[in-house]
Design a protein around this nucleic acid. Structure first.
Length: 332
DNA sequence: AAAACGGGGCT
DNA sequence: AGCCCAGTTTT
């Protein structure tokens, strides 16, 4: 791997992303959490919203988790929002180890370990924030890096250890050639995101095509890495939507450990639940909603009824599925 | 090592 | 219709 060629390429081709214009560790941490399994275009929108309301870690620690979740609404993977709030509380805890400051080289012996000890921060995010905000030479391993490693080495299913070792060897090489860790990590990810893409890699534009074993491999670059098989499970549910005279639905807050944890929505029953016959008998069917997640297909029967005390859903965090369910029930 | 966790965009 | 996305946590 010609690390200097890739670093030069990044200097010329880096996308102008808003978090690349700041050195504030909190803003960078927020961007990395938002970008977990989320595409950049979507991350930008939520990054601006959250940073506008919570410009510092302290400002989030002083807020209620429900306010964070309301701003998180629609972004998915809601545990991220809940854990980010927990992180802010932990960092700002009086008498705690952090005293209101995120881990940094001046306060922390091992910055990567410091970040990874916090809620919602795993190996990727810890290395990303430490390298981008503090120039710690820790290699990040995300989906882009895995793909670049698999293709450079023409390895069908590289182990996590293989990927981490090679990524760190590249980082050490780059760091030794005075390429800043912030630049190197983002250069590898940028290559994966814009050139070494999953479906249609642009090998002729690639700054590290020499030495890429997948490029001229008989099965072609897209054979690497081998696709993982995934199965989708269908789940049948019944949503019970009761509305009051003012048209406001009865909502309950989901437990934090449940799917859509911490968000509000109507009551749900498993379609096989014995209580379904009784509950649906007292309501009218409003229709069906099919909601697709990456690993689940939710088939929801929506049954509408009446209640004395609905609530105003306007200031509550509600999942995209429940937005659709409530909208359907309103028409019934 | 595998499963669970959201939602949207692209081919 | 299938696959992917700047992953983390739990089992």
């Amino acid at each position: 791997m010609d690390v200097e060629a890739l670093a030069r390429w990044y200097g010329r081709n880096a996308r102008d992303l808003p978090w690349r214009r700041t050195t504030d560790p909190w803003a960078i941490l927020l961007s990395e959490v938002l970008l977990q399994q989320t595409q950049v275009a979507r991350g930008i929108e939520y990054w601006r919203r959250l940073l506008d309301r919570f410009p510092t870690v302290t400002s989030m620690a002083e807020a209620e988790v429900d306010e964070v979740m309301h701003l998180w609404q629609g972004a998915g993977y809601y545990a991220r929002g809940r854990r980010l709030h927990a992180l802010s509380v932990e960092v700002c805890a009086p008498g705690g180890p952090w005293g209101g400051d995120l881990p940094s080289p001046s306060t922390c012996d091992d910055v990567v370990a410091g970040f990874q000890s916090l809620p919602g921060i795993g190996p990727y995010t810890a290395a990303a924030v430490a390298s981008i905000a503090h120039e710690v030479p820790a290699a990040v391993v995300d989906g882009n890096v895995r793909r670049v490693v698999a293709r450079q080495t023409a390895t069908l299913k590289p182990t996590a250890g293989d990927v981490t070792s090679l990524a760190q060897a590249w980082m050490d090489d780059a760091h030794g050639r005075n390429v800043p860790p912030s630049v190197w990590n983002q250069a590898v990810m940028e290559l994966g995101a814009t050139v070494c893409t999953p479906r249609a890699p642009r090998c002729s534009d690639c700054p590290v095509q020499q030495g890429c074993l997948a490029r001229d491999h008989a099965s072609g670059p897209t054979a690497f890495p081998a696709p993982a098989k995934r199965r989708v499970i269908t789940e049948r549910l019944v949503a019970l939507v009761d509305v009051d005279a003012q048209g406001r639905p009865h909502l309950v807050q989901r437990p934090s450990e449940a799917r859509f944890g911490g968000l509000w929505g109507p009551r749900y029953l498993d379609a096989n639940d014995a209580a379904v016959v009784d509950e649906c008998g007292r309501r009218t069917k409003a229709g069906d909603v099919v909601h697709l997640l990456s690993h689940r297909r939710l088939e929801v029967e929506v049954w509408a009824g009446q209640t004395e005390h609905g609530v105003d859903p306007a200031n509550k965090a509600i999942s995209t599925l429940d937005e659709r369910v409530l909208h359907l029930a309103k028409g019934a």
